[in-house]
Amino acid sequence: MTASSNNRILGIKNRYLVLVLLIGWAVAYNIMPPVLVHIQLPPEELTHPVQLPILGKFAFTNTMAAMLLADLILLVLAFAFSRSARAALAAGARAISGVSGALEALMEALYGLTETNAGRWTREIFPWFATIMLVVLVNNWLELIPGVDSIGILHADEHGYPVQELAFGTTLVAGDAHHAAGGLFGLVPFVRVNSTDLNFTVALALIAVVMVQVFGIRALGVGYFKKFWNTSTLFTKPMFGVIDFGVGLLELVSEFSKILSFSFRLFGNVFAGSVLLFVIGFLVPSFAQTIFLMLEFGVGLIQAVVFGMLTMVFMSQAVVSHHGDEHADPEGAAAQH
């Protein structure tokens, strides 16, 4: 009986529920076809902007709302985890069940991954890896919540669509703009996925790259900068010395390119994903978007892992001396293996 009850929601078998939803979806599409919302790169402002002295224009944007939402989810998760972890510790390191157990398993896997790469520095590097991973993951997966990117306030927009009164609100409808009585409107969603805001990804990338340099300096001291300004072999080996010097400069450039690649990789994946969802929802209103939501689930996970793991790998490389045989750091070299 438990097996059949697992396949039921509200006493209806899941497959029939799915069928009903699909039919209802198709009917709704015929009554009220979805519209392609206006796509813009910068986050939409929800409040009137104020002018601040140094920062310039500042307003509460919908990506900030997503950020707060994600932060709230993370806080709840962390608080629940800390409580169950303390309880588990008190009970002699017993297993944790539920979401906290899943979080613990994830943390354990990430810790193991860090340990194989970072060695001695695992305990310092792991929090950065895990935080970046968790924050990006929660922000990416916000896209899967119904209503995100689709519920918001209407504002007058000459490129927009006419509106229609519904029982519990107002919605945009496709229709002839010239015959609209009440004017044309565009939608500003209350919550827009944070990862589609370059501010978030650039902030994360800046923190990651800066922390990589901080770890390098903590591990190697001033010697870390020899990686970028390598004059040690410039005069001893004329040809290769010049090449080494050039490589050092390239390393410097690559640190900046890391910021760009970090931020644009995450931003591009998630932003392209949400644009894809808009377009698919407009072209094939029924069913197709579900498949792409599944794709976005995978992309969100992979991008979170990639962002965190790259940060971890760069940090692990930074704490190891670049020219181990010339100015040796035996502990760092040992930590690498």
Binding site: L41, P43, K57, F58, D197, V202
Partner: peptide, 8 residues
Amino acid sequence: LGLNLGYL
């Protein structure tokens, strides 16, 4: 691009 020092 929507980059803003305050938001950042």
